[in-house]
Design a protein around this nucleic acid. Structure first.
Length: 269
DNA sequence: TTCCAGGCGTATC
DNA sequence: GATACGCATGGA
């Protein structure tokens, strides 16, 4: 990692990193673009303002070296060589185009409970409204609430979220977390299909939400969420399955494909 | 007004 | 196991 400390800020040099493509691509819902090339958001309840200030150069304001090494290095997945991953993926013609189109995508290492609960809220919903619901959630609890803080909530008491039928799913997830029926730390290291099956014990968690929780909240890069967009991508480009070159990183490849097809809804091949 | 959104539970075959 | 339908809400 290439960085310098400058007063109370950090200057980070980082290739293969685009703020829009990473922070505003539907994998995390608590980042806001507050100025051109500037985002503000949170990992759990730790705030960060990050700006692109030059070619592959970023400013992390009010950030200590300790914050960087202890939190943001991990959250922004700075230990992964995305250049190398993109070279591997580019053996496949479609993925080559997708990586070319949005080469600055990274998979964030989000908190597992936040990712799980966020993607419960995401089902049959659109990204602006997901952000709205999660915005009301963090405002109400003055930060992202863990399961313990949601212990007493019911479908009715969560009406202020205006999350519709998803409120009861959230309540069920909280109960299964608190009772110990679900242990995200254990699930993290299970074989993919077993991990998915465990998460699907929660009402409202199906195959897709479970995969999103695994990919975005537990850094399981082998998890491959299939939503309406990926269904189209698979039918169009991979009717016989994914190429060998994505093995172990199906989820990372998925993120490039997701971004690409959403912005090229009519392109064939 | 109708359609749709990073799906899933339920009923039915 | 596959398929059809309803579901809360709000933006286009």
């Amino acid at each position: 990692m290439d960085y310098t400390v400058k007063g109370s800020d950090i200057i980070l040099h980082q290739p293969d990193f685009d703020l829009d493509e990473t922070l505003d691509c539907g994998q995390a819902f608590r980042w806001a673009k507050t100025a051109p090339d500037t985002y503000e958001g949170y990992y759990l309840n730790d705030f960060l303002r990050i700006s692109r200030i030059g070619d592959e150069t970023f400013l992390l304001e009010n950030t200590t070296e300790h914050d960087l090494l202890d939190k943001w290095y991990n959250y922004l997945d700075l230990s992964t060589d995305y250049g190398e991953l993109k070279r591997r993926f580019s053996e496949d013609k479609t993925l080559a185009r997708a990586c070319e189109y949005a080469g600055g995508i990274r998979i964030l290492r989000q908190d597992s409970w936040e990712a799980l609960s966020s993607f419960i809220i995401s089902q049959n919903n659109n990204i602006p409204r997901i952000k709205g619901i999660i915005g009301r959630l963090v405002e109400h609890y003055e930060g992202y609430p863990d399961a313990e803080r949601l212990r007493e909530e019911t479908e009715e008491s969560l009406a202020f979220l205006r999350s519709g039928f998803r409120a009861k799913y959230l309540v069920d997830a909280v109960h299964k977390m608190l009772s110990g029926e679900l242990d995200l730390e254990k699930i993290k290291s299970l074989p993919l299909n077993d991990a998915q099956k465990e998460l699907m014990r929660i009402k409202g968690v199906g195959p897709k939400v479970a995969m999103c929780a695994l990919l975005f909240g537990m850094y399981r890069t082998d998890a491959f969420p299939i939503d309406v967009w990926m269904k189209r991508a698979l039918e169009r480009w991979y009717p016989n399955g994914l190429p060998e070159c994505v093995k172990g990183y199906e989820g990372t490849a998925q993120q490039y494909l997701f971004h690409y097809i959403r912005n090229h809804p009519n392109e064939q091949m």
